[in-house]
C-alpha cells in the first residue's frame, strides 16, 4: 500500500509513559524523551520519521489511545 507517513502525534495529556509503543516499533522510529508531561511521565518522541513504514503497531498496542499516525 502506497502510504507515506506525514506525522506521528503523541497526545501528551493521554500518554502514561509505559513505553510499549517504543518496544513494538519494528523500525525504531520512537524513542524515549527527556521531557515530562503533566503527570510527570516520560512520553515517547519521534526520532526518525523517515524510517516509519506505517504498520500502525504503535496505535494498535497503545493501551491509552495516545498515538496517532497521520498519512
Amino acid at each position: 500500500m502506497p502510504f507515506t507517513v506525514k506525522d506521528i502525534m503523541i497526545k501528551k495529556d493521554l500518554c502514561k509513559g509505559c513505553g510499549i509503543c517504543i518496544d513494538v516499533c519494528p523500525r525504531n522510529v520512537l524513542t524515549g524523551s527527556d521531557e515530562i508531561n503533566e503527570y510527570g511521565l516520560y512520553y515517547p518522541m519521534v526520532s526518525d520519521l523517515k524510517r516509519c513504514i506505517v504498520c500502525r503497531l504503535c496505535e494498535l498496542y497503545c493501551p491509552d489511545f495516545a498515538v496517532e499516525v497521520h498519512v
Binding site: D13, L14, K16, G17, C18, G19, I20, L41, L60, Y61, C62, P63, D64, F65
Partner: peptide, 16 residues
C-alpha cells in the same frame, strides 16, 4: 480519557 488503568496495563489494549 485517560483511563483509570495503571501505566502499561493490558486492559487498555483489550479495550482497543
Amino acid at each position: 480519557l485517560p483511563t483509570a488503568f495503571c501505566p502499561g496495563c493490558g486492559d487498555g489494549q483489550i479495550l482497543g
